[in-house]
Measured scan of single mutants.
Amino acid sequence: PDEFRDPLMDTLMTDPVRLPSGTIMDRSIILRHLLNSPTDPFNRQTLTESMLEPVPELKEQIQAWMREKQN
């Protein structure tokens, strides 16, 4: 489902985090971005790792969907 895909890389998220802007991304992708630029890739506001907020409900939904697909 589209809501499980990272908006920057269009890959399935495994550890979704919410940026201060409200955008949800995969943690590994935003951390890689932050190594090059300490900004939100969508609005260029300053962004640090400590500002990332886990989204455990979405992570659980993704994991359940993945388990379902394996069966």
Rank of each mutant, 00 (worst) to 15 (best):
G22F: 00
P54K: 00
S50R: 13
I30C: 00
L58H: 00
V55T: 04
T14A: 07
P41E: 04
A64M: 12
T14G: 07
M25G: 03
M13G: 06
V17T: 03
P20C: 03
D6R: 00
E68K: 11
P20F: 00
L12K: 09
F4L: 02
L35R: 15
M9F: 06
L31W: 09
N71C: 08
M51E: 14
V17I: 03
I29K: 00
L35F: 12
P7G: 02
D2L: 10
S28F: 04
L35P: 08
R5Y: 09
L31T: 14
L12T: 00
D15N: 09
S50I: 01
P20I: 02
P20G: 02
D15F: 01
E53M: 06
P20A: 00
T39V: 12
P56G: 04
P41V: 06
L35V: 13
P41S: 03
R44T: 09
S50M: 11
T11M: 06
S28E: 14
E49M: 03
M9R: 11
P56W: 04
H33Q: 08
N43K: 05
R27C: 02
E3F: 04
V55D: 01
S28D: 14
M9K: 15
G22A: 01
L34E: 05
Q70V: 07
M13L: 03
W65V: 08
T39P: 00
D15Y: 01
G22D: 03
T48V: 06
P54C: 03
L47K: 05
I24V: 15
I24Q: 07
F42S: 06
S28G: 14
Q63V: 12
T39D: 08
R44F: 14
R44Y: 07
Q70R: 12
Q45P: 07
K69I: 15
P54G: 09
T46Q: 07
E57T: 08
T11D: 05
S50A: 13
V55A: 06
W65C: 06
T46N: 15
R18Q: 13
P56C: 13
Q61L: 07
R32S: 12
E68P: 06
M51K: 02
M25S: 05
P7V: 02
E53Y: 09
D15R: 03
Q70N: 13
Q70A: 14
S21E: 02
S37A: 09
L47G: 00
R44N: 15
P1S: 05
P1V: 01
M51D: 15
E3H: 08
N36V: 11
L58Q: 10
P1H: 09
S21I: 06
H33Y: 09
T23G: 07
P54W: 03
P7Q: 04
F4A: 04
S21R: 01
T46M: 14
K59Q: 10
M9E: 15
P20E: 00
R67E: 14
V55C: 10
L34S: 03
Q61A: 13
L52F: 03
P38N: 15
I24T: 05
D40F: 04
R18P: 00
R5N: 07
S50P: 11
D10C: 08
D10A: 10
R44P: 03
E3V: 08
R18E: 06
Q70K: 15
T14S: 13
M13Q: 02
Q63E: 12
T11S: 13
D10E: 10
L12C: 09
R44E: 14
P1T: 06
S28K: 15
L12W: 02
D10K: 10
G22Q: 03
T14H: 09
E3P: 07
L19Q: 07
T46V: 11
R5S: 06
W65Y: 05
N36Y: 13
S50L: 05
P38A: 10
R18K: 14
G22P: 01
L31I: 12
L19F: 05
G22R: 01
T39Q: 11
T11K: 07
Q61S: 11
L52H: 04
R44S: 15
T14W: 06
R67P: 06
W65P: 10
R32H: 12
V55G: 03
Q70P: 15
P20D: 00
P7D: 07
T14N: 11
F4V: 01
P16W: 00
L47W: 02
L52P: 01
R32L: 09
R27N: 06
E53W: 02
R44V: 07
V17Y: 03
R67F: 13
S21A: 09
E53K: 13
P41L: 00
E57A: 13
I30P: 03
P1R: 06
D15L: 01
E49G: 08
S28Y: 05
D40G: 00
M66R: 10
L12G: 04
I62V: 09
Q70E: 15
S37Y: 06
S50Y: 11
S21V: 01
L52R: 01
H33S: 08
K69A: 09
S21W: 00
L12S: 12
T46K: 13
M66V: 14
L47P: 06
I29G: 04
Q70C: 13
P7A: 11
M13C: 02
M9I: 05
Q70Y: 03
E68L: 12
E57Q: 13
F4E: 09
I29T: 12
H33T: 06
P7R: 04
N36L: 10
P54V: 01
T14E: 15
I62A: 05
Q63H: 15
T46G: 13
W65Q: 09
L34V: 07
E57S: 09
W65M: 08
Q45N: 08
D2T: 11
M25R: 08
I62R: 02
